[in-house]
């Protein structure tokens, strides 16, 4: 029996399946099963010991839940603003670092990458205290130097969001810049040379060669930014010390899922939140990929 088994797994036809088996196993236990489970739970009221099927009640309740809409709006605005800030600027920085004029390139690459090394916990703690409402916190000192009065940064929606975005820009500008730098490496030098011969100026070269050639990188950064933006939670959790910002100014979709599922033990309702997030993320990214023509050509 063991001999047969040994022969079986050493078979050249069987071996590939053995190699990918760990993935399939983990995929079933920790992806497929939770996925199905969460869909099922979203139609249930989860009570200790018994689950009651309640149809679409969780969903209909969700669409009348003003906090949920606040969370969706927050996540959405955050996602859009990170796209606006974390694609053009890192791209521009990458082009500047890549240009012949720039000096100390490797040094600046490293410095820009440093913030990405920190955990959100540490970064969030630092930002929370640097933006504290005290007159003598770093940011309040700074704006007083410019002649403004101190601000209670994390107590208001606009300024609270500004801090969230600054945190995101601080951590990700360098990383996205590296993505664009590796994209720039793939652009053949000849394109620029022939543009030089045609007498193109720098701006024309940037818009006619660099940006179109960077399209795959832009699509990649956009895709991960849409997911990361919509699924943002820890940043808000750290800035507001737990999941409780004043009047929910910092609540996100995942924050609401966490509140319902973990803090209120309302798994069915939390699952419905998760499904809505999944649909939202999928629809957004598939639309984005379609607009960018990723499905058109496979050559």
């Amino acid at each position: 029996m063991t001999k047969f088994f040994k022969k079986f797994i050493y078979n050249q036809k069987v071996a590939p399946y053995i190699f990918i088996f760990p993935f399939v196993l983990i995929f079933c236990i920790f992806f497929i099963y939770p996925m199905i489970y969460t869909v099922v739970m979203s139609f249930q009221k989860i009570l200790p010991g018994e689950n009651e099927f309640i149809g679409f009640s969780n969903y209909s309740k969700l669409f009348r839940d003003s906090v949920f809409f606040k969370a969706v709006a927050n996540s959405f605005v955050y996602m859009v603003l990170t796209l606006v800030l974390l694609i053009p600027f890192p791209m521009l920085f990458a082009c500047m670092i890549n240009s012949r004029t720039m000096a100390a390139k490797e040094f600046f690459k490293s410095v820009f990458f440093l913030p990405a090394l920190t955990s959100v916990v540490v970064a969030g703690t630092i930002f929370r205290l640097a933006f504290s409402e005290s007159d003598s916190s770093l940011m309040n000192q700074f704006i007083q130097m410019l002649g403004f009065t101190p601000i209670k940064w994390l107590k208001m929606r606009e300024t609270g969001f500004a801090v969230l975005l600054l945190l995101a820009c601080w951590r990700w500008t360098g990383v996205n810049m590296l993505y664009f730098l590796s994209g720039l490496k793939n652009i053949p030098e000849e394109l620029y040379e022939s543009a030089d011969i045609d007498g193109a100026n720098s701006w024309a070269k940037f818009t006619k060669i660099t940006v179109p050639m960077l399209k795959p990188t832009i699509i990649y950064v956009m895709t991960i930014s849409v997911y990361a933006g919509l699924a943002m939670f820890t940043e808000s959790y750290m800035l507001w010390g737990g999941n409780n910002s004043p009047q929910n100014i910092g609540i996100t979709i995942v924050g609401y899922l966490y509140r319902q599922g973990i803090e209120k033990n309302n798994m069915g309702y939390a699952s419905a939140v998760g499904i809505v997030l999944l649909v939202l993320a999928m629809v957004l990214n598939l639309t984005q990929l379609k607009i960018n023509g990723l499905f058109k050509k496979e050559d």
Binding site: L230, V254, M282
Partner: peptide, 24 residues
């Protein structure tokens, strides 16, 4: 088909599945 599953995992934010994974 299985390789598409690898890509699928990369496309679904972990946060969506954290509750059922936790129960698992």
């Amino acid at each position: 088909a299985i390789f598409i599953c690898v890509l699928l995992i990369m496309m679904v934010p972990f946060e969506i599945l954290m509750l059922p994974m936790y129960m698992q």
